[in-house]
Computed example of a mutant assay.
Amino acid sequence: MQQARARVEHGVVGGTFSLDGQTFDVDNNIWVVGDDTECVVIDAPHDVDAILAVAGQRRIRAIVCTHAHDDHVRVAPALRERTGAPILLHPADRPLWELTHPAATWDRDLADGDRIEVAGTTLTVLHTPGHAPGAICLHAPDLGCVFTGDTLFQGGPGATGRSYSDADVIVASIRAKLFTLPGETVVHTGHGDDTTIDAERRLLDR
């Protein structure tokens, strides 16, 4: 197998998350996958300049949204305007997207099994509803990692206490789509520290 040229780069940016009439301060991870010339950005939280500080001068081939909560898509249209990169989102998250961007839309629908090619590697879309109806994860086997958005964190599944979420569905998604990945797969989350598939499987199954 040809070795991937891609690498994972990371930043953190602070802002707010609002839903169901409540607002919370949050820190979001910025994830960028690419090489020296091109990359994809995973989610668009809070601040365009913070995202571009991680992406640098590279061509951004896509803005891939793990789900449409406002802290993950708030600056997606502004980032698109600055870079020309298309926004990719699972269409089941339209109701959440429209809460934040009623006058804008995304460019391309994501579906389970889609493949996003960048810098010699492939990100495979895993539809993992539960935290949000259109939540997705991105598996990068060449890089030994999966980007889980708010579906799986260090310590367990993402929150399901708000509109458009379902606790039973998120656990089923995690078992079917994430716990079938190799145990050593590194989990890059939407908030907080990395973990591994094995570590989270042990926690959920104990």
Rank of each mutant, 00 (worst) to 15 (best):
G190V: 09
I170L: 10
D47T: 02
G192E: 10
G120S: 09
Q154H: 13
A111Y: 13
G15W: 08
A103Q: 12
I42G: 00
V186R: 15
D20N: 14
L96W: 03
I30C: 06
D150K: 02
D150P: 02
A199G: 05
E38A: 15
D93Q: 09
E81T: 15
T189I: 03
E98Q: 14
T160Q: 04
L203D: 11
N29K: 08
R202C: 12
L178T: 06
C39A: 15
G134L: 05
G149I: 06
I116Q: 08
W97I: 07
F179V: 05
A119E: 11
F179A: 12
D114M: 07
G190T: 08
L181Y: 08
T122S: 14
G56R: 03
R162Y: 03
R108P: 02
Q57R: 08
A55P: 01
W106A: 04
V8Q: 13
I51L: 10
I170C: 09
H139Y: 14
A159M: 10
T124P: 07
P102R: 04
G15E: 10
D35Y: 05
D194N: 13
L152K: 09
D166V: 01
E9I: 10
N28H: 10
G84S: 09
P95V: 07
T196W: 12
Q3H: 13
D193I: 03
V169Y: 04
T122P: 11
S18Y: 00
T189M: 09
A167W: 01
A159W: 04
H139C: 04
A104L: 11
A78N: 10
R58L: 02
K177P: 03
T16W: 10
T151P: 02
D194K: 09
A4C: 14
D198P: 02
V48F: 01
T148C: 08
T189H: 01
C39L: 11
D27Y: 13
T148E: 10
D166R: 00
V8P: 11
A76Y: 07
T83Y: 09
G120R: 03
A167L: 06
D107W: 12
D198T: 13
R94E: 14
T100N: 08
C145W: 00
P182F: 05
H46E: 04
E81Q: 15
N28D: 15
F179S: 05
P45E: 04
H10W: 15
D35F: 06
V13C: 11
V54Y: 00
T148V: 11
P129G: 09
H10G: 01
H188N: 12
R115W: 02
Y164P: 00
A103N: 13
A4W: 09
H139S: 13
Y164I: 05
K177F: 00
D20S: 14
D25L: 13
